[in-house]
Computed example of a mutant assay.
Amino acid sequence: MTSHVEETLVLVKPDGVARNLTGQVLARIEAKGYTITDLRMLVPTREMLVRHYEEHEGKPFFEPLVEFMGSGPVVAVRVRGQRVIEGFRSLAGATEPTTAAPGTIRGDLGRDWGEAVQKNLVHGSDSTLSAERELAIWFG
């Protein structure tokens, strides 16, 4: 087998931070065997969020999403490991917390809150290109 070490961005979103779930998310990342190489807590600026979610600009959920993500602290995590992009997305679970499998972050800790924007605790980059772009936004 060939080595495929990569880095990804993981965000603990404002709902995860507000519910004091950051430690559980980080523990799951480490228990999976991935390495946390950088971590910071910040309230993201609108500019950062518009850059991060640029592919969704113009969609009906864009403004509520940007507003939600800027509503409180976010924990940004640079994670490194073998196939970590695919691995973290599997660990996070399906985007919709109601249908996310038990054993995943969203399946165990998330639920539908009946609000205009989906609060699903975490974000993980979906490709190496996205990871590079997103890590540059959040870590410079």
Rank of each mutant, 00 (worst) to 15 (best):
L49K: 11
G140A: 09
P44L: 12
E6Y: 02
L135H: 00
T95W: 07
T98L: 14
A94T: 12
E86A: 14
H4T: 14
V50L: 00
K59F: 02
L91C: 03
V79S: 11
P44C: 12
S125Q: 03
T35C: 00
V74L: 05
Q118E: 14
L121I: 15
T35D: 08
V17F: 04
P60F: 13
R133W: 01
V66S: 09
M69W: 04
A136W: 02
L65H: 13
V77C: 03
E63S: 08
V74A: 03
W138P: 01
E67M: 01
R111L: 05
V117E: 14
R51G: 04
F139W: 15
E132G: 11
G107L: 12
G93V: 06
A100K: 00
D108A: 00
F62C: 08
G23T: 07
E134F: 02
L11E: 00
A76V: 05
S130Q: 13
K119N: 13
G72C: 03
E63K: 08
S71V: 06
L91A: 05
Q24R: 13
M1I: 07
L65I: 13
H123K: 01
F139E: 15
G81H: 10
G87I: 03
G110F: 06
D108R: 01
V5M: 10
E54T: 11
T99F: 02
G140Y: 01
M48T: 05
P14D: 06
T98H: 10
I137R: 06
Q24L: 06
L49P: 03
M69L: 10
G103H: 13
F68H: 10
R83C: 06
N20D: 15
T35S: 12
M41G: 06
V25L: 12
G72L: 05
R133G: 03
A27D: 13
E6W: 00
G110V: 07
I36F: 09
R51D: 11
A116K: 14
L9C: 07
T22H: 11
L26S: 08
G93E: 10
D108N: 00
